[in-house]
Design a protein around this nucleic acid. Structure first.
Length: 271
DNA sequence: AGCGGAACCTGTCGGC
DNA sequence: TGCCGACAGGTTCCGC
């Protein structure tokens, strides 16, 4: 489900709602969500307060009191919802954190690919260090990107989805960014000029910023913490637009599969 | 090392 | 109506 703008929107919403709250009870309804399960998950987390909530790539990081961290990944269909107690008995509610003030932080997930794990500072660093650049990282320059891509012969879209390179992009924004940059999704990564890579970086930031302003893209599952929708789906130019006219040249948008993922583009505008 | 494909799990939609 | 396959915003693992 969620890519960087959706995760960031959820983090901002959660920050407002539950920073400083104490976890007073935990219900685990689907144990596979909790990684490295051990008897002490509940013991450790119980009665800790939520100090801060942040995002790294598509991960959510909850800093708790006592040097503890919860690292969560929503994968395809995960959501965080804040409700007043008592919690509605929805089948997709997988993990429920009761908070003081009669609130609950609910982890809901249709497909159960998502994960939550308890860790400490060094564990957190270890888990996140493999992630690539944040899209706004000053270190992300055309020169460094070209060097990073020099041994990659695969399509540029595949590399955009690779979290080890740039962290936070997913299938929707990869198509949108490449359309904005006028680069074919099938273009070999190591064949892009410095100039093209500069455009690519510029388009990445531009599209993500616009998506953030719109609180993300709600196509099927994604909802904000309060169940409101994002609105970037209204601004998509190519994703899901197979056979629609290209907004620039009116040629029909193509939809093809690339590495098992649907990919949308205009063959005239993107070279 | 890099690459493509399968797997994880549940739900929905379109075609027959 | 019912069944069946394809597909869904992500990541990891496996074999080549």
């Amino acid at each position: 489900m969620p890519e960087l703008p959706e995760v960031e929107t959820i983090v901002r919403d959660l920050r407002k709602e539950i920073t400083g709250k104490k976890i007073t009870n935990i219900e685990i309804r689907r144990s596979s969500i909790i990684q490295n399960p051990s008897m002490d998950f509940c013991d450790s987390v119980l009665n800790k307060r939520i100090k801060t909530i942040d995002r790294t790539g598509k991960y959510l990081v909850f800093e708790l009191t006592g040097g503890l961290y919860l690292l969560a990944h929503l994968r395809m269909t995960g959501k965080f919802i804040v409700e007043s107690l008592p919690v509605s008995d929805h089948v997709h509610n997988r993990v429920i954190f009761h908070l003081d003030g009669d609130q609950a932080l609910i982890y809901s997930d249709v497909r159960c690919f998502g994960t939550i794990e308890k860790t400490n500072r060094s564990g957190l660093t270890r888990k996140l260090k493999h992630l690539g650049w944040d899209p706004w990282d000053k270190e992300l320059t055309p020169e460094k990107l070209r060097k990073r891509l020099s041994n990659r012969s695969v399509a540029i879209k595949s590399v955009l989805l690779d979290q080890h390179c740039i962290a936070g992009l997913g299938n929707i924004y990869a198509s949108e960014i490449l359309f904005d940059a006028r680069i074919s999704p099938f273009k070999k990564s190591n064949s892009l000029s410095l100039k093209k890579l500069a455009v690519l970086i510029h388009s990445t930031r531009k599209i993500l910023e616009k998506a953030l302003e719109n609180n993300g893209t709600s196509i099927s599952d994604y909802r904000r913490v309060d169940d409101k929708q994002g609105s970037f789906q209204n601004m998509l130019k190519v994703y899901g637009k197979k056979d629609s006219p290209c907004p620039v040249c009116s040629k029909p948008i193509l939809g093809k599969r690339l590495n098992q993922r649907s990919t949308f583009y205009c063959s005239k505008c993107q070279k």
